[in-house]
Simulated scan of single mutants.
Amino acid sequence: MANSLVSIQIIPKTKNGEDVIPYVDRAIEIIQQSGVKHQVGPLETTMEGELGELMKVIEQMNEAMIALGSLNVISQVKILYMPSGITMDTLSEKYRP
């Protein structure tokens, strides 16, 4: 069972104020390619897995933003670390119809 839930909102600073959506799309693509369980929300994406693995995904996301031409990147991250195990479903099951 996964030991962490990590939510991330990535905010790249573009050179000339370009739309950031293509950058965000690329960041989400990196999460999808990683194979970790995730859920895309309107303001952030939540990933489920081992903390070290999820932090590597975040590192790859930040590096990709720079490779695309971003001057810098703000990553707003929330981490729930629970060594005994945690899932997205566990936290949200009581709110589903």
Rank of each mutant, 00 (worst) to 15 (best):
R26A: 08
P83S: 00
P22R: 06
G85K: 05
G49E: 01
R26F: 09
I58D: 04
V36D: 12
V40K: 08
N72W: 12
A67D: 15
M88A: 09
K94T: 11
N62L: 07
K37P: 12
V20Y: 07
E93D: 14
I86G: 00
I58V: 13
A64I: 09
H38L: 04
V20T: 11
S7A: 15
S4H: 01
K13I: 15
I74V: 15
E53A: 13
A27V: 11
Q76T: 15
Q39Y: 04
D25F: 14
P22I: 02
G49V: 04
N72T: 14
S75Q: 07
G85N: 06
L71V: 12
E63T: 14
V36H: 12
T87C: 05
M1H: 02
I8G: 00
I74H: 10
M1I: 05
N16Q: 07
Q33P: 10
Q32F: 04
Q60M: 13
N16L: 07
E53H: 12
L91S: 13
S4K: 03
I86D: 06
S92E: 15
D89E: 10
L71D: 13
T14D: 03
G69F: 00
L5A: 02
V6E: 03
A67Q: 14
Q76Y: 12
E29N: 00
S7D: 01
G52E: 11
E48Y: 05
G69L: 03
T14K: 00
S7T: 12
M61H: 00
K56M: 04
D19C: 12
I86R: 00
S7I: 01
I58Y: 06
I74F: 11
I79L: 00
S92M: 15
S75G: 01
G17N: 07
I8Q: 06
K37I: 13
G69Y: 08
E53I: 10
M61F: 03
E59D: 11
N3T: 05
K15C: 12
I58A: 10
M1A: 03
V73L: 05
G85D: 08
P42E: 05
I11S: 11
M1D: 07
V20E: 02
G17F: 01
N72A: 14
I30P: 08
A64Y: 10
I66F: 06
G52H: 00
Q39H: 13
T46F: 01
Q9F: 06
A27L: 01
L51S: 02
E59P: 08
E29D: 07
D19I: 02
S4C: 05
E63A: 13
M88F: 11
S34I: 04
P83W: 11
I79P: 06
Q76N: 14
M65D: 06
K15Y: 13
I31N: 09
V40A: 10
E48K: 03
N3I: 10
S70K: 08
P12W: 09
I11C: 11
G35Q: 03
P97C: 04
R26M: 07
S34W: 03
Q76I: 14
T46S: 02
V73R: 05
